[in-house]
Amino acid sequence: MEFWLEPIIQGILLGGLYALFAAGLSLIFGVMRLVNIAHGDLIVLSSYVALTTSVMLGLHPLAAALIVVPVMALAGYGLQRLLLNRTMGNDILPPLLVTFGLSVIIQNALLTFYSADPQKLKAGAIETASLGIGPVSVGVLPLIVFMTAVLVIGLLQWMFYHTALGRAFRATSDRQDIVQLMGINRAHIFALAMALALAVTALAGVFLGIRTSFDPAAGGSRLIFGFEAVIIGGLGNIWGTLAGGVILGVAQTLGAKIDPGFQVQAGHLVFLIILAVRPRGLFPRID
């Protein structure tokens, strides 16, 4: 029993990280039906920004997050206003291909500046600290990541349903045209959504960089993990995204327990099985 308990707990905690990958993706899809192919590369970009700030300013990576998060949020606002808003419309090709081009640009720009060598954020003792809970020991860092994910998703949920901004996000999601009659500048709302998404993405990037090593090509699988969490959880459900992340995380750690080479594949297979039996995800929004 304990043999399985340990990977399951690790998987749940890993799911927190995946939920953070997914939350930004889910948010921008929810508000403006945009799927950002460069999402994973933006996560990795955040890891690199954290690397540079923590090295240059001598900061702990978690403290660097205080700089990385607003920087990425600002970048997200600008990206949406200056570039992505020009691609919005009924045709799905322009946003898809523009974010695809962006993905290639970010990857190769990172290669140019940082080389292909894997990097890691050095967080000191916290990386290896662990707590004994009953028979299993739980890493402090994965626990912090998971708690942060729960907190972030709780805040997003609260923002969506209890603030004027959240109301504007939901109204924009319902009717992009009519919302403007309420005096709401759609371009600004879209940009705020992207800023918020990239703020979450930045957090995900910092945690990713502390947990594992990363390189410029690491974005693709981060996009895929986030995407799988969104689809498993069900579109339009923020808590579902957390559940999706956890299911994916557990599938991966159990897969790794069977065979280390099977970790990622196990996650993909669970995703495909859920797509086959519950195409709308496990917890779709009811409407």
Partner: peptide, 26 residues
């Protein structure tokens, strides 16, 4: 200048009161 659009076009994921409040957003 306010418009009551043809077909009403309310915001489906907002409650009645939220629909009114977003009208007052200005």
């Amino acid at each position: 200048i306010a418009l009551v659009p043809e077909g009403r076009l309310l915001f489906a994921s907002l409650s009645v009161e939220e629909n009114l409040m977003i009208g007052g957003q200005l």
